[in-house]
Write a protein that binds this DNA or RNA. Structure first.
Lengths: 396, 396
DNA sequence: CAACTTTCTCCACTCACAGGACAAAGAAGA
DNA sequence: TCTTCTTTGTCCTGTGAGTGGAGAAAGTTG
């Protein structure tokens, strides 16, 4: 099962691999247009890449007015594994070297069951994907966890919502099992990388990616790189105070953003509203299912339920207020809203936009798009694959 | 007056110049310890630098157990000009190539008098420094302005507190007048760079530098680089909402941080308190001077005046609350507090610390020093000199 | 004064890279 | 079909970057 994937020998080769990854199959001549190298040097480096099995020849390109150029592409047999561990579910996907998803599995699972149980699950899902013929082995795996990570070592640190994971050597353990390089990161950072690679943030250098799911977090991309902070907890905005003396939060404080708006908070507020008889729509759904989720609120709002709309609007205002502050501070070129609650759609977005455009200075908001992520649940696994491919496609 | 300062020919030379700048005179052998080059290559590059007049020989070093090494140092005749334009005063300083301040002038001046008047002032101060024999000409000048800057062009954009400066070609104009390269940045960013070069943030890669003066701003250093944002307005935290439905702010909103705590807000609150008879100390100072400033509040607090202490504490709480949010978001390794109100000293710091340590998560605050800047009014001009020296000491 | 260390200089060798000459392959028009 | 032009690939040479070793120069230590 162990595969010794070759690694680029120098920065030029790394650059070429990334061009092929992001642009797909390409002719040698086109590569020359995108890289600052003489034709002769380029030919040498491409030939060397062909000698490893990272890159393979791929026929002739169409003529551009003269002799046809030889196509090259990344080895179509390369496989990356993208893993996204959420608070309540696990996503595992297999991609090719161009980071296209070949297979994707999702499994509900509580992260609090601990690293051993979750690992078993992840490995069995990976085995399933392999058994279905999508991969013989993996050339690298990226994995996201819902908490802070000491990035260089790939180890979660003091993760509030995943007790038992503190200090667990995720990177090393998974690398052992899979026999390939592994990189670990916070799930929100991976979502940001995913949207940057293939989503709304394509090639944006400075942006924020707010993920609102069970909890709330924010991926920070500055100068094209993810900013992780000194202890890996950057972007942990769930416990910023949104409401002075507001609702009590699990962290011990009051008024945290997460306590006022998140998947969990929204469900709680919806149940309360239903029980208080404020909304027939929500009450009937509560009676039917015994519980409510963000999906129910979204459906009720879509059906015109005023209470549901109010809940969404108020939540959007809270998040929007915090984001307004972050926009003033960070001055991003784009804000992406993602995570489980994106089903709330335009109502949520409208409330956020209102707050941000009202509270932040015109210079910061003048040309600032605030949009929903476009990759949905695949953002995380694509980001994970991207993370490990950046690693594998860099000089050893 | 025009001087054609040589520029390093490659990255190695640039690296060597910066080592000499930051480490002072140094032997060739010691330079070899700090740079990853063979002895022969190092000798070649140092010799080339000696051929330009950027670097000069400087005798022999002490023996380290064998043959004594030749010392080299940056040309002691190199001169940088550091300019810090504040809302109410202008600082101009001359430094040598090691960024040591050789002369420093300060002049009260309202930035709203516009770029032409301020420029005249700056140039006359620079002329004065030159006339006193500190410099024959300048090899570069850095300048900070109290507002957002389009950094690559060196032009202020939509600066709220300095009308008339919008779009004024600061970089080009000053470069013309002085006949040397010029770089322009936000004053807060320069303060951060100053504290990073020679102050409390020496060699810290990720930190925040909060400057509380007439207004309030925050320098952001991420991965060793200043983060300026897409429109140059990053760190503009004065208009983050600190108090819902709070005091009206000049920007049109309510409850902005700056409206509740800043040099201006503190003076206003102190006058109010004095007029309401809450503090004899403040009232007598008001009667004596006809007005109050942060200095008066600091003095009153030092004398044990409870009202002054309350003002400081409450202001510190406001700022602290905002900083707590930024700490959660950015996860810095250090927070520096600077600007005019640092005279409030420990009382202010204590209030800020309390808020941050109480509201941010332990992982982010566990090892987070929150300290006062140690360079005071020289931070800005040192940062300005550092900015231009980074430019001059980079390959042309 | 001998033995050892550090530093500097010189030289030969390797490798990265550019750029030009030329051949191969195709397009477009006569 | 033939000629001319364009594009692409290959080969070769020249330049400069950079390494590493030999040995000389300059010190220290006992």
């Amino acid at each position: 099962m162990r595969r010794m994937t070759a690694r680029p020998a120098n920065a030029h080769q790394a650059r070429l691999l990334r061009l092929l990854r992001d642009g797909g199959p390409n002719s040698r001549a086109q590569l020359g247009d995108q890289i600052d190298l003489s034709r002769s040097k380029l030919a040498v480096e491409v030939d060397r890449l062909l000698e490893t099995d990272l890159v393979v020849a791929d026929g002739l390109a169409a003529s551009r007015g003269g002799r046809r150029s030889h196509n090259v592409r990344l080895n179509p047999g390369l496989r990356f594994l993208g893993v996204d561990i959420g608070a309540t579910s696990v996503d595992v996907a297999v991609t090719n070297a161009e980071l296209e998803i070949l297979g994707h599995l999702n499994q509900p699972m509580d992260v609090r069951e601990g690293p051993v149980a979750v690992f078993e699950q992840v490995l069995s899902m990976a085995a399933k994907l392999r058994a279905s013929g999508l991969a013989e082995g993996f050339d690298g795996a990226g994995i996201g966890v819902p908490g802070p990570v000491r990035f260089p070592e790939g180890v979660p640190v003091a993760p509030p919502i995943m007790p038992g994971w503190d200090g667990f050597p995720v990177r090393e353990a998974l690398s052992q099992e899979l026999g390939c390089p592994v990189m670990v990161d916070n799930d929100v950072n991976l979502m940001a990388m995913g949207e940057r690679h293939a989503g709304v943030a394509r090639s944006v250098g400075d942006f924020l990616c707010v993920k609102i799911g069970t909890g709330i977090g924010c991926g920070i991309v500055a100068g094209g790189d993810v900013h992780r902070g000194v202890t890996g907890s950057a972007g942990d905005i769930g416990h910023i105070q949104a409401v002075p003396d507001g609702r009590p939060c699990a962290c011990g404080n009051r008024g945290c953003l997460e306590a006022h708006f998140s998947g969990a908070a929204l469900a709680r507020d919806a149940v309360e509203a239903a029980q208080q008889g404020l909304s027939e729509e929500l009450a009937s759904r509560l009676a039917a299912n015994g519980t409510l989720t963000a999906v129910d609120v979204a459906a009720a709002a879509a059906a015109g339920d005023a209470t549901a709309l109010d809940l969404i609007r108020e939540g959007g205002n809270r998040v929007g207020q915090v984001i307004a502050g972050l926009v003033s501070f960070f001055n991003p070129g784009l804000v992406v809203i993602g995570g489980g609650v994106t089903g709330l759609g335009h109502n949520l977005l409208a409330a956020i936009r209102t707050q941000v455009y009202r509270q932040s200075l015109p210079l910061a908001t003048g040309n600032l798009p605030i949009v929903l992520g476009e990759l949905g649940p695949t953002a995380g696994v694509i980001g994970a694959a991207r993370l490990i491919s950046d690693h594998v496609f860099s000089p050893a």
